[in-house]
Amino acid sequence: MNGKIAIPKKFYFILFASVVAICLFSFTIGRELYAGKTENIFSFGLIHFAGYLFFLLMPVELAFIYYLPYYPGVDLITTAMLTAVTAQFIDYLIGRLLRPNKIIELMGQKRIEKAEQKIKRFGMLTIFVFNLFPLSSPVIALAAGMLRYDFRRFLVVSILGLLLKYVVIYLVFKG
């Protein structure tokens, strides 16, 4: 025994993802708040896009609610949809192209297996429902890519779930 503590690779991954998330918030909303400026739709888009990448997992629905007083619902929903679908496309591609053992190493075996089991069992319903709730659809997109789930079906069902989620959030919180 050489006296060194073994630090799992997952720790470095979590540390990296945390630093990226903190920097994104600091350079967007944080900077706007300190400068006393109004909120910027580009900041929302950047945060929203990053939150839909499987390795960051941020509650971007809160950012949507935060920006509601500053922009029309159509602008926010459009930005949310474009950024979420783009990020999920990337998640899907990563799932398809990266070696499964690398993804499992980063995300955890149980988490990936659960997502895969749900997609195998319920298919499109799983993708739709998981797009309705925060923090779950990026992992489902990754698992769908790993399973080589039909991309067109994945895309259509994801868009429907995301659109329903953001329309409901808009209607509930528009003030």
Rank of each mutant, 00 (worst) to 15 (best):
I5P: 03
A6Q: 15
A6M: 14
P8I: 04
K10I: 10
L15F: 12
A17F: 01
S18G: 15
V20H: 04
V20D: 03
V20P: 03
C23N: 08
F25K: 11
F25W: 09
F27H: 09
T28L: 02
I29L: 15
I29A: 09
G30S: 09
A35Q: 15
F42D: 07
G45W: 00
L46V: 14
I47M: 13
F49S: 08
A50K: 05
G51S: 07
G51Y: 03
Y52V: 02
Y52I: 06
L56D: 05
M58I: 15
A63M: 12
F64E: 01
I65S: 00
Y67V: 08
L68A: 06
Y71Q: 03
Y71L: 10
V74R: 10
V74Q: 10
L76P: 05
I77N: 01
T78G: 09
T79E: 00
A80L: 10
M81V: 13
L82G: 07
T86E: 00
Q88F: 05
F89I: 12
L93N: 05
L93S: 06
I94M: 06
G95E: 00
R96H: 04
L97N: 06
N101C: 04
N101H: 13
N101E: 14
N101R: 13
K102D: 13
I104G: 01
I104L: 09
L106T: 06
L106K: 08
K110W: 01
R111A: 11
E113D: 11
K114M: 12
E116C: 05
Q117K: 15
I119H: 08
K120S: 11
K120F: 06
K120R: 15
F122G: 07
F122L: 11
G123D: 00
M124R: 08
L125C: 08
L125W: 10
T126P: 07
T126D: 07
V129T: 10
L132M: 11
F133T: 14
S136D: 00
P138M: 08
L142Q: 01
L142F: 04
L142T: 10
A143G: 06
A143V: 05
A143C: 08
D150G: 11
F151N: 02
R152H: 09
R153A: 10
S158T: 14
L163A: 13
V168S: 07
V168I: 15
V172R: 02
K174E: 13
